[in-house]
């Protein structure tokens, strides 16, 4: 089962299955990779949006948290992590 990161439920770790680099600008793609967001990496959606909007999205990746907008999250396909969810962060 593969979903897009912009609709993934909060608080559950997922693995990045595929990133559609073509719909991202060159700079956006590079910054995602610089944050460590690439195929095979586990991320955990933590917070989403405020009163005004369902964007942006705060993600846990390793020991850091990054903020991205829905547009970038929509380019990222994720799949559930098969192992114990508690082991991921």
């Amino acid at each position: 089962m593969i979903a897009k990161l912009d609709s993934a439920p909060l608080g559950m770790a997922v693995r990045i299955a595929r990133i559609d680099w073509d719909i991202l600008s060159h700079d956006e793609g590079r910054r995602l990779r610089e944050f460590g967001l690439m195929e095979g990496v586990e991320v955990k959606p933590l917070h989403r949006g405020s009163l005004f909007s369902r964007e942006p999205l705060a993600l846990g990746i390793g020991r850091m948290q990054v903020i991205i907008r829905g547009r970038q999250a929509a380019a990222i396909a994720v799949e559930p992590v098969e192992t114990e969810p508690a082991a991921a962060a």
């Binding site: 949006g49 405020s50 009163l51 005004f52 964007e55 942006p56 903020i67 907008r69």
Partner: peptide
């Protein structure tokens, strides 16, 4: 940065 996160929705508009 938390404030920036909260305000982004409004700023985006």
């Amino acid at each position: 940065t938390r404030a920036a996160f909260l305000m982004d929705g409004l700023m985006a508009k």
